[in-house]
Design a protein around this nucleic acid. Structure first.
Lengths: 337, 337
DNA sequence: GCACCCCGTCGAAACGATTCGACAATCTCG
DNA sequence: CGAGATTGTCGAATCGTTTCGACGGGGTGC
């Protein structure tokens, strides 16, 4: 194995000089720099990660805590992970993969053993047992999603309030005057990943502001429940011409149910969804949608961490603006009615 | 930060003794052991990963190289990654995530810098540029999938030959006498991840052995191509009563096309697929299938690596037996004909 | 031409573990 | 009962970097 002293000898300098060339922490003359870099290349030198970590108390590794077993969001998670790794590499860091199951002990373990310099925690719940720990750890961290008590923590996510508003705005601009939000099943609102409430709040506020009538309905993603929800919705709101769906698994079922109830999309009913682009594109009728910007979240999360590692201060909350992609499922309200 | 000398002092022993208690590499009296362990607990001591890596030249980290951007197989990859992390932890190792894109340089980097002790490489191609490098690296590695030249490499995957055989066997036992394999598009056979050929070989050999007639057809996963393939197949093989589908994206299209051609499943035609269980279950007609045993592959891959790290010798090739799950798409051939 | 400062480099001391040889004390066996 | 093997522990060297203080030499200001 080739080490720093080998490089130093060959370049005719001391090991510390080589180190300074590598880190740039002290000025080095151009000539020396060139000689050192040449030696490094010729010898194929790579600093020993362990030694480096020991001496500098920096491992240049980030931990990424992922829910590795769950179901629906998998491709989005993958995109996110990809963005994290890629961005981390751009900042000369690597990524250590931890599972949700390792829980608090896992976090403490990698932190105490100085295996990583910082943490990214995905899939944060409203009442997340890890938040007190994260606050007390000496390592910087970034959470994906917002817990109930977010103070003292750095969090990032799609701005769900703005998302709800944006969907209503889109429908309003198309001339719709009576809209509904079909959300997650009741238990999600209760257990709470928080984003459900925020979408609903944005939705309702925007509808109010635009002076259009609105309803919010939770919805189980089963064929029977969907059927019933749709029937009730159409019965109670005969003037309904637009719906926003924030419920991935129910989306295809809903489309089907509406069509069976005689509503053509988009002629009779405009549909906007909050879901991954993939799903929106591959639906029976391609659906106008707002996607979770997984890549951007991943990238920004890493950049927040890097800033924190460099001692810069960063905003507590980062809310990414929603981007609505128009597809065929939403159209101006027909002249009739 | 609490270090080994702190533990040693509190337990009234030397640092080396603490180390030996932790590693078990030398006999320690029961009494001392207890005292040391107690001190460790009381102080919350965790060995510094970098220091440990430096002194022992073992990082206790595995690299997992994943294709993080691709499309279809995502949930399977995730399962696999989950199994790798979980199993690695059981062996007191962590997992570093690398993307495919980092390529050979990435492998060399983590190897040379002693960041990791071993490598797991997913998504290996028939002609994979990384195989020569893996052969020459001093680190042990395990490949998921088989390259063309596998000698000197440790590989693991589903036994696709046996899979082809198993599908035919299932159909034969149900009384079918004329079957077809609908495989991947031609370019996949050419570019080659290898498994396509092996499935076809197993399929054909088994059909021959059972004395039943068989065809193999590649198949593009587009609506038009599927339509045409199905028509041709039914025209050329009027006695056909069973098909094996080894083409994930085409599966739903094929089911639809067969039914539109007047073949009821399973009354007129039995279908067996090679695809993730998820997909098989959620098809219009739940499909009898053989799945990639992602979890088992991940677990076994890690265990192979651990064995290699311990200096044990392991088999070059590990082929996991297929497990066929019967669903409603396959049934005994009707009494007619 | 002298004091002073800055630039570029060096040497040596950490960093926190593991490991190897040595050694005392206890056992074993003839 | 003594030589030799065994058991349990210690001290010191080592792993490969980074970092800090020091220091020589060339520039600047007066």
């Amino acid at each position: 194995m080739v080490k720093i002293t080998d490089v130093a000898r060959r370049a005719g300098v001391s090991p510390s000089t080589v180190s300074y060339v590598l880190s740039g922490k002290r000025p080095i003359s151009a000539a020396t720099q060139r000689r050192v870099e040449e030696s490094i290349r010729e010898l194929g030198y790579r600093p020993h990660a362990g030694a480096r970590a020991l001496a500098s108390s920096r491992s240049n590794v980030l931990a990424l805590v992922m829910p590795l077993r769950s179901g629906v969001h998998v491709p989005v998670q993958m995109q996110f992970a990809g963005a994290v790794v890629t961005t981390a590499r751009r900042h000369d860091h690597d990524v250590l993969l931890l599972t949700q199951e390792e829980g608090e002990d896992g976090l403490r373990r990698v932190a105490d053993s100085a295996l990583v310099d910082a943490l990214i925690v995905m899939d944060v719940q409203l009442r997340d047992a890890r938040t007190p720990l994260l606050r007390s750890l000496p390592l910087p961290s970034v959470l994906i999603g917002f817990p109930a008590e977010a103070d003292g923590l750095t969090c990032i996510d799609l701005d769900f309030t703005a998302t709800g508003e944006s969907c209503v705005g889109h429908l309003a601009r198309l001339g719709h005057r009576c809209v509904a939000l079909l959300g997650s099943p009741p238990e999600v609102y209760a257990r709470g990943t928080g984003f459900a409430q925020r979408t609903a709040a944005g939705f309702t506020a925007a509808a109010h502001r635009c002076g259009i009538s609105s309803t919010v309905l939770p919805c189980e993603p089963t064929r029977a429940a969907v059927q019933e929800t749709v029937e009730r919705l159409l019965r109670d709101h005969p003037g309904l011409t637009g719906v926003v769906v924030h419920n991935e698994p129910a989306l295809p079922l809903l489309l089907e149910a509406f069509q069976q109830a005689g509503m053509r999309i988009p002629q009779d009913l405009s549909v906007v969804a909050v879901c991954p682009d993939e799903l929106a594109e591959s639906a029976a009728v391609p659906v106008t949608s707002v996607a979770i910007p997984a890549e951007e979240v991943g990238e920004r999360a890493v950049e927040l961490l890097m800033a924190k590692l460099n001692g810069q201060s960063v905003p507590d909350a980062t809310l990414l603006p929603p981007r609505l992609t128009q597809r065929v499922s939403s159209a101006p309200r027909g002249p009739a009615s």
